[in-house]
């Protein structure tokens, strides 16, 4: 018991130290992300209203204590819809970045380390893929395959791989001839271990900031697709699809469009604040 307590105390102290070292922007960024993740977690268990429940008596009502962000054209509670939309948006974006970053770093680090003809071939394909904007690539997949949450994750996830390959490979090329890598080779460290224990920790900072940037791009791309009604399909709603529904009521019920829009801005801002601190 004592051990656990001491562990927690030292960890908390370490966290405090770590937090003190961050810049102000970074601290704000972390706070925003923490709050958003908290909201997403809560939204799994509790929402003030059922986001799909319609209420004919309360159509397009302005913000009030009972409906924090007002109601939409079907009388649904916008706050609850934003919460559940945020949840979908975050999950989809995380899925996209996870696919992109994982495959991107595996392919990028191996091809960068090996080099030669293999590298040449991989990069050719990679370049051809980056020639497509990720949005277009996802459009191709979806136009053939149909829309849907998981299809969006896979389509955009694949579209995000090339940029991670490029970043990780670039770092790999820079680092693989470092003296400390030669030194590790002289120690008799096997190639696999050199890549993942010696070089990869040094790529990590770059990769982390690429992940933060990638997360933002994923949110933007997903919301773009959903806005065009070819991403998430109703009744599920991400922040993007809510915006497209709300645009028609801009004149009478601006809160309907502004609420999801601003939540999205804050989400992206949180990540870009954090990633900016990382790059410095």
């Amino acid at each position: 018991m004592k051990k656990i307590k001491r562990f927690i105390v030292t960890r908390a102290k370490g966290f405090k130290e770590w937090f003190k070292q961050r810049t102000v922007t970074e601290r704000i960024g972390f706070c925003i992300l923490f709050l958003i993740m908290l909201m997403v977690l809560i939204s799994f268990f509790y929402l003030p209203y059922d986001p799909t429940k319609m209420d004919g008596t309360a159509k397009l009502k302005g913000p009030s204590p009972s409906h924090l962000f007002g109601t939409d054209n079907f009388g649904r509670d916008v706050f609850s819809r934003v919460m559940s939309g945020l949840q979908d948006t975050v999950i989809i974006a995380l899925g996209i970045v996870a696919i992109g970053a994982f495959f991107g770093s595996v392919i990028g680090s191996v091809t960068g380390y090996i080099g030669g003809l293999f590298d040449e071939a991989v990069m050719r394909i990679n370049d051809a893929m980056t020639a497509f904007p990720s949005m277009l690539l996802a459009l191709v997949v979806i136009s053939v395959w149909g829309a849907g949450k998981y299809k969006v994750i896979i389509a955009l996830g694949i579209a995000f791989i090339p940029s991670f390959v490029r970043i990780v490979r670039g770092e790999m090329l820079k680092l693989k001839d470092a003296d400390y890598v030669d030194s590790a080779r002289l120690m008799g460290v096997p190639t696999f271990r050199i890549i993942y224990r010696h070089i990869f920790p040094n790529i990590m900072p770059t990769l982390l900031s690429a992940i933060a940037v990638g997360f933002n791009n994923a949110v933007l791309a997903e919301s773009g697709l959903s806005y065009l009604n070819i991403g998430v399909t109703p009744p599920e709603a991400s922040l993007g699809s809510m915006l497209s529904d709300a645009q028609g009521y801009l004149l009478n019920a601006p809160w309907y469009a502004l609420a999801p829009g601003f939540v999205m801005i804050i989400l992206i801002l949180g990540f870009s604040f954090v990633s900016e601190g990382r790059t410095k």
Partner: peptide, 21 residues
Amino acid sequence: DKHGVMQMVFQDPYGSLNPKK
């Protein structure tokens, strides 16, 4: 198996130690 027998000390003391370890 030639490891250990012959070693190198590099010129640049800032590049030859892994900065993350």
